[in-house]
Write a protein that binds this DNA or RNA. Structure first.
Lengths: 263, 263
DNA sequence: CGGCACGTTGAAGTGACTCAATTCGCGTGG
DNA sequence: CCACGCGAATTGAGTCACTTCAACGTGCCG
């Protein structure tokens, strides 16, 4: 499954890692050089495959090069709760670097390309370039901030507002990754899965989505989210992107097609 | 408010920090010495006071010496969602070391003693003793694991099971801190606040608590949780403490009064 | 004694759930 | 080309868990 050492693939991976970390952290050129010395193995996975399972003890952390991954919990009765949706560029199980046992699973939602960053190499990298360590740490802290919002979203918001918030977050994150056109981004989930993210039944997701569509806020169709009116959508969700700790004025946010606040 | 430099208070604080980190991480004696060189300021706060607010940019992280703190979100409409309850020994806003802006608030639930660990000193400590940095990082990762469980708890479990899970987590964490007698621990929350933790109305909390009491699982009264039958309680919650990433066989777990699994 | 915070209870309302049927889009095979 | 199957979206109907509202009990403290 894992491809043999391939220099160009490794370079692509480290370049993606650098740009992901630069989204929220400053790196010196020495830091970047240190990162580029990692030689990760890369691999392709089809849709719907578990990369890591609850109870596993992984020896590498995953960098997502393309596609979409998601983390989830499974209860004994088989019910599933999705925890986080990871767009390309993300580091979906960095925590396994310091937590031996996986307390959740990680699956591919779309076909994906991934790079395996061996824990040993990561530790060496962090010792050699502490600022890179801080950037990685910050990355895990932003993850935690996103989890906190998910708690509040589920605890306090009724279905339509809850869905709206979920969509706002997704759109903003994909935009931040520089992967979205204006007013639209991929959302490779069916209504069942969206429900498992935000704690709603499939029927409720459907009706909430219809309300958002009828009110010309947003539209979900064919694995794509279309934002019809960002102002209305984000207002409905009471969405404040502060918790994502992104630099919303950074070039990549502007490049991605203009005013996040408007339209 | 902050007391002047006091050597013995600082020593107490660093000792608590060491024992907290040792709960999940190994520290060399050199690491411990490096930690003990921190000279934090300490302070007492009454019940119900915000230590840090959403939007603040703190310059130190807080170590809780005694009492209880909680983190929470506030929505524009004034609704409150509690996110995490921190027993003595915990580091409730370590993330501010790398995330400039607070995306949530931190308040005292009980009168508390706290130590302020200046970010600058923490960064120096981490550079000097990387293993301490790893331990602190691990601490924030366990926090994230707890947040993930909270999402699943709210998304998947009905009221009684949800409350049961909340109680199991609280009991296990306080036990791990070595602060609980057998079968009982402090829970300085009223039913309103419990509801704001687990996303239930005060009435539902009341009725869920009654069911747990009637079924001889657990009892909540006067700021105290009494576990009547751990097996039944944890089974009802489908509670698996793995996500807390504690060493359940460590001496402090045994010292705290015996078999966590039983009675 | 009065006030207050907290817990408890009953009753009525409702948002979300389950169940079940129908429709839609799309790829596949006859 | 059309029939078919299948997964996903949609819809309606009935139910239920949790909510809100409102009242009342209880213990504590000034």
């Amino acid at each position: 499954m894992r491809s043999p050492l391939d220099t160009s693939a490794a370079q692509r991976a480290t370049a993606i890692l650098v740009s992901t970390l630069k989204r929220h952290s400053q790196l010196s050129s020495a830091d970047e050089r240190a990162i580029s010395e990692i030689r990760p193995l890369t691999s392709s996975v089809p849709r719907g495959k578990d990369l890591v399972r609850q109870g596993d003890r992984p020896e590498d952390s995953i960098l997502l090069l393309s596609g979409t991954l998601a983390r989830y919990h499974t209860l004994a009765n088989g019910m599933r709760q999705y925890l986080q949706l990871h767009p390309a560029g993300d580091l979906p199980d960095l925590q396994s670097l310091f937590l031996q046992i996986m307390d959740h699973s990680l699956a591919s939602i779309e076909p994906a390309e991934i790079a395996f960053l061996p824990h040993g190499e990561l530790r060496r990298l962090i010792l050699k370039a502490p600022q890179v360590g801080f950037a990685l740490w910050r990355h895990t802290l932003i993850d935690a901030a996103i989890l906190r919002q998910a708690i509040t979203n589920q605890g306090l918001r009724p279905s339509t507002e809850r869905l709206a918030h979920f969509l706002c977050e997704r759109y903003t994150l994909v935009r931040a990754m520089g992967l979205a056109d204006v007013g639209t981004c991929s959302l490779p989930l069916n209504q069942q899965q969206i429900g498992q993210f935000i704690g709603l039944s499939i029927v409720s997701v459907n009706r909430a989505a219809q309300r958002l569509r009828k009110d010309r806020c947003a539209e979900i169709a064919a694995g794509k989210l279309t934002v019809l009116n960002w102002k209305r959508l984000s207002a409905r969700a009471a969405f404040d992107p502060m918790y994502l700790h992104l630099d919303l004025h950074a070039p990549h946010m502007r490049l991605a097609g203009g005013r996040l606040e408007q339209e």
